[in-house]
């Protein structure tokens, strides 16, 4: 049986570079990180410090040059593109700054998307979609299209889409970056609820110190290395 202290994310000696023209830019060189299960970590840092690259690597949508990335016991740095797609579908939920919903689909259809990759039947999928939208408080918006909803509501749909397949890990990239303070607090409360009541491990990239307050701990990324900072009570 797993406990909260079991490692969910383990990064060892990670190296990641980008080539820009003739220049090679090193983002990480020997990065190490361990995040236990059911943790809620805010990753902060200046622009260009590698926050988004870190999320990409953790979500298996980009690959590293060297080092290891282990998530829930799986070495994702060794997986092929097809294996990564399969792994993402069942193990990770993504929440983006600009929601990234399909405009031609309703809220329920957007949330149902990850379930199209499962063997669930139509009825079971509908039940899961309704449950996910209930968690984010949007039971009455099933048939609404994104353009008919506010930014906060769209982000809640995006969160419902991220949790509908019940992944252990949620990766959130500036989830409140496009929202006003009040709406941002609502979204962060939902993430906190998912961490506290549903045991989801959450890694959230943010510039906003107020948003970081909702996490259990904050990591500051600077020049490719982490500095852990205490959060104000």
């Amino acid at each position: 049986m797993s406990s909260a202290s079991d490692p969910m994310i383990g990064i060892v000696d990670l190296r990641k570079t980008f080539t820009k023209g003739k220049e090679t830019i090193t983002i990480f060189d020997g990065l190490n990180l361990a995040i236990p299960k059911a943790d809620f970590v805010a990753v902060m840092g200046p622009s260009g410090s590698g926050k988004t690259t870190l999320l990409n690597l953790l979500g298996g949508i980009d690959c590293c040059d060297a080092g290891t990335i282990e998530i829930a016991g799986i070495r994702i740095d060794r997986l092929s593109e097809g294996q990564l797609a399969h792994w993402r579908a069942s193990h990770v939920g993504f929440v983006f700054q600009f929601y990234n919903l399909m405009q031609m689909l309703t809220a329920a259809q957007n949330v149902e998307l990850p379930l199209l990759l499962t063997r669930l039947g139509g009825k079971a999928r509908r039940e899961r979609v309704e449950a996910a939208l209930a968690v984010v408080g949007l039971s009455d918006r099933l048939k609404h299209y994104p353009k008919e909803m506010s930014g906060g509501q769209q982000q809640r749909v995006a969160i419902a889409r991220a949790i509908v397949s019940d992944p252990e890990l949620l990766l959130c990239d500036e989830p409140t970056g496009d929202l006003d303070r009040r709406t941002a607090d609502e979204i962060l409360s939902i993430l906190q609820l998912l961490n506290r009541d549903f045991g989801k491990t959450i890694v959230m990239v943010t510039h906003d110190p107020a948003a970081a307050q909702y996490a259990r701990r904050a990591l500051h990324l600077d020049k490719g290395h982490f500095i852990e900072k205490e959060l104000a009570a």
Partner: peptide, 14 residues
């Protein structure tokens, strides 16, 4: 392009 990226992120294979 962006929507295709999102689908792939969700796990839709190529």
């Amino acid at each position: 392009t962006r929507e295709i990226g999102v689908l792939k992120t969700l796990g839709f294979p190529g």
